[in-house]
C-alpha cells in the first residue's frame, strides 16, 4: 500500500490544479488582512458597539490573533471547496480521464485504492491547513502584532489573554483538519458514484452550503436535526476560543465528524468494491 500511496501523492502534487488551492487560501487571507489594515478600526467599532456603551476598551484590539480568527471564520465556507477540488476528483477524475480502468487492470485492491485516495486527500488537507496556519496566523501576527483576543459570541464577550492563545490555535487547526477530512471523505464518497470530475465537487459544496444553512437557521424543525448534521460540528474549532473551553462538546463534535468520516469511507469502499467500471 505504501507504493500506492506514494504514487497517489505523486499524482496529486505533480498536478498544477493542486496548487491553485494554496494560491486561493493565500489570496483570501491577504484580502481579509488588507481589508482589516485599511478598515479594521470601523469594523471593530461596529462589532463592539454593544460593549463600548459601558466599557472603554483600548489597546491593540485588532491584533493578529483576532484577524486569524476572522480569517478562519470566513474560510469556513471556502476551504471545503478547495478540499473537494482534490478529493472529489480522486475517483471520478480518474474515471473521467480513463486512467481508473487502467489502474484497476493492475493487481491492486479496490478497497486499498479507496483508502489510498482518502489518505492522499488527507495529506493534501493537512498541508492546506498548515499553509493556512502559516499565512493566516504567522502573517497576521507579523502584520498586526499580538495582543489579547476578543471573541464575540452572540451572547458573550470573551477575552483571552495573549499568552493563553497559541495553544488554542494549535488545537483549532487540528480540529479544522478533522473537519476538512470529513469533507474529503464526503467528496470521495460522492466521487465513487459518478464518472465526471466536476459533479462531486459541486455536490460537496451544495451539501455543505445547504447543511450549513440548516445548522445556522433557528427553526424548531432544524433544531431537531442539527445535532446530527456534520456541518453543526465543523465549527467545533471555535470552542477552543471560549472560556472555559467546552471540551465535552468539542469531543462530541470530533466524535460525530470521525463517525461521518468512517461512514463515508466505509460506504465508498463497499460500493466501489462492487462497482462495474464502465468509464
Amino acid at each position: 500500500m505504501i507504493p500506492l500511496l506514494r504514487i497517489e501523492l505523486y499524482k496529486i502534487f505533480r498536478r498544477p490544479r493542486t496548487y491553485i488551492s494554496f494560491g486561493i487560501v493565500t489570496a483570501i487571507t491577504l484580502v481579509i488582512q488588507l481589508a482589516m489594515l485599511s478598515d479594521g478600526k470601523s469594523f471593530i467599532g461596529f462589532a463592539l458597539q454593544g460593549v463600548n456603551e459601558q466599557f472603554d476598551i483600548r489597546g491593540n484590539i485588532l491584533n493578529g490573533y483576532l484577524i486569524t480568527y476572522l480569517i478562519l471564520q470566513s474560510l469556513l465556507i471556502h476551504i471545503p471547496l478547495l478540499v473537494a477540488l482534490v478529493a472529489g476528483d480522486a475517483l471520478a477524475g480518474e474515471a473521467n480521464a480513463g486512467t481508473l480502468r487502467l489502474m484497476l487492470t493492475k493487481p491492486i485492491s479496490r478497497v486499498q485504492l479507496v483508502f489510498v485516495k482518502f489518505l492522499g486527500s488527507f495529506v493534501y488537507t493537512v498541508l492546506l491547513i498548515v499553509w493556512l496556519a502559516i499565512v493566516a496566523l504567522v502573517l497576521s501576527l507579523v502584520l498586526f502584532g499580538t495582543g489579547d483576543m476578543i471573541n464575540l459570541k452572540s451572547d458573550a464577550f470573551v477575552l483571552l489573554l495573549q499568552d493563553d492563545i497559541l495553544w488554542r490555535y494549535g488545537l483549532a487547526f487540528l480540529f479544522a483538519v478533522l473537519a476538512m477530512t470529513t469533507i474529503a471523505a464526503l467528496s470521495i464518497f460522492l466521487s465513487a458514484f459518478t464518472d465526471n470530475a466536476i459533479g462531486p465537487v459541486i455536490s460537496t459544496m451544495g451539501i455543505v452550503v445547504i447543511l450549513t444553512i440548516m445548522s445556522n437557521l433557528e427553526l424548531p424543525l432544524f433544531n431537531l436535526i442539527k445535532p446530527y448534521l456534520f456541518t453543526t460540528h465543523m465549527i467545533g474549532w471555535k470552542g477552543f476560543f471560549d472560556d472555559p473551553v467546552p471540551y465535552a462538546a468539542i469531543m462530541r463534535s470530533a466524535g460525530v465528524l470521525a463517525m461521518y468520516t468512517v461512514g463515508f469511507l466505509g460506504i465508498t469502499m463497499l460500493y466501489f468494491n462492487k462497482k462495474d467500471i464502465k468509464s
Binding site: 452572540s154 433557528e218 442539527k226
Partner: peptide, 13 residues
C-alpha cells in the same frame, strides 16, 4: 448584550 447569531455563527448551539 446580544449579537445576531447569523453574524457570530456560534459553535455552542
Amino acid at each position: 448584550y446580544k449579537l445576531p447569531k447569523g453574524v457570530t455563527m456560534d459553535y455552542n448551539d
